[in-house]
């Protein structure tokens, strides 16, 4: 089961968002669809899912050509769901609606799919909770469980990690990755969060400037500068993954050491505006040098400042002494 588009154009009556798009979404792949806010990510997801009519071209689903695909595509949208009294369990059972008759009688197979989805997303502690009482992260997880219960080969998610803290964001992306790889689903995630997408996606679709979509694996798109061109980073170096700091102190420090302690010290000193040198033939040419050493699994910093030596036990103290 895969989905592909032929010369697809999407948008609204007076505004074309994407033109002549040819994409394919294959099983076993986690695809992140990236682009700045407002470029039309949600519209593309809705069009691919059959919830919005394309302006031109077509979306094809191998083996099915009706406009609704409730047994092939499940969606998680940005629309917030509220309903008095509805519990997490009830919300997950909505995933089985395409398989039930008007009376919504759940078969044992349906119940098993619901239980399976709850287990996969690890919701068992909150199944009886009302959705009005959930945190944003829990509600998002519940919506994802509902999509899993729908038992479709394709799942599309629109900004599933928006408004969530780092922990929840990582958890959701890991879950989506495992769904695509272990359950062999095709998963499409629209997101504008670079860091997570770069580390989890098998494939990136990048919304281009000319109503086109660039495709590629994350690393290629980073190295060929596609991301820089589209996101127009201001003060962020994607190739190192770091924020560029201004060296406002005009002071160079020679820093040596190993491991995490060394990296975090370097971070802190760069953030506070020092230029850092770690490889030099003669350390004594620099007025200031810092050695990061670890003794009995406790880090210490030896600071040599114009022939005076200090031994410090924290980076904060080090920066103050500097």
């Amino acid at each position: 089961m895969s989905l592909y588009t032929k010369a697809l154009s999407i948008g609204y009556n007076n505004q074309v968002l994407f033109e002549n798009i040819n994409l394919s979404l294959n099983k076993g792949q986690l695809v992140c669809f990236m682009g700045p806010n407002g470029i039309g990510k949600s519209s593309l997801i809705r069009t691919l899912a059959g919830l919005q009519k394309p302006l031109a071209g077509e979306v094809n689903l191998s083996g099915n050509d009706s406009s609704f695909h409730p047994k092939e595509i499940a969606v998680v949208l940005t629309n917030k769901v509220t309903a008095a009294n509805m519990t997490v369990y009830e919300l997950v059972t909505f995933g089985r609606y395409p398989y039930t008759n008007w009376n919504i009688k759940l078969s044992s197979h349906d119940l098993k799919a619901v239980e399976g989805a709850i287990e996969k997303v690890r919701l068992y502690d909150i199944t009886d909770k009302r959705i009005a009482e959930l945190s944003d992260g829990q509600l998002q997880m519940t919506m994802i469980a509902r999509a899993i219960a729908q038992d479709t080969p394709i799942i599309m998610l629109d900004e599933p990690t928006a408004h969530l803290d780092l922990n929840n964001r990582v958890e959701i992306m890991r879950l989506l990755r495992s769904l695509s790889h272990e359950m062999n689903k095709a998963i499409l995630v629209a997101t504008h969060e670079l860091d997570l997408a770069l580390q989890t996606a098998d494939l990136i679709w990048l919304a281009g400037k000319n109503k086109n979509i660039l495709k590629g694996i994350p690393e290629d798109l980073v190295l060929n500068g596609s991301f820089d061109e589209i996101f127009q980073f201001k003060g962020f170096d994607l190739k190192t993954g770091k924020i560029q700091h201004q060296l406002f102190r005009e002071q160079t420090i020679f820093l040596t050491g190993t491991g995490h302690e060394f990296l975090w010290t370097k971070n802190a000193l760069e953030r506070t505006g020092f230029k850092i040198i770690s490889h030099a033939e003669d350390a004594s040419t620099y007025g200031i040098s810092v050695y990061v050493i670890v003794e009995e699994s406790k880090p210490h910093w030896i600071l040599n400042k114009y022939n005076q030596q200090y031994k410090l036990s924290s980076i904060e103290a080090l920066i103050q002494q500097l």
Partner: peptide
């Protein structure tokens, strides 16, 4: 909501 209703067939 209507979008989810449609996505469920």
């Amino acid at each position: 909501g209507d979008l989810y209703a449609r996505s469920l067939g």
